[in-house]
């Protein structure tokens, strides 16, 4: 299981930080960043799923696969 915040959708509502407090850090504008992207205990996973359901922009993503995050790179 992997937890991510899609920064293109995050609008800084910070609701994820209420539900997933241990795993999310908010910056000075309230945009969230996931501290540890593996939600491996069932307790953490429950919290992550709640955060995902509460995010008004669908930016908080809990995915079943655990592929490392891809950072798009310049090619041209």
């Amino acid at each position: 299981m992997t937890v991510r915040i899609d920064p293109t959708r995050c609008r800084g509502h910070a609701i994820c930080a209420l539900f997933f407090a241990d795993g999310v850090e908010l910056d000075q504008w309230g945009f969230g960043r996931v501290l540890d992207d593996s939600a491996d205990s069932s307790r953490l996973l429950r919290k992550a799923r709640r955060a995902a359901a509460a995010c008004p922009n669908g930016a908080f993503i809990v995915s079943e696969h655990s592929t490392p995050a891809a950072r798009p790179v310049h090619t041209g």
Partner: peptide
């Protein structure tokens, strides 16, 4: 010109970088 932006444009979308969870 960033690769995900180019791929998005070629697919008919906007030429803006995409948040991707997989390469």
């Amino acid at each position: 010109g960033e690769s995900s932006a180019v791929a998005s444009f070629v697919d008919g979308g906007e030429a803006r970088p995409r948040f991707t969870t997989r390469p």
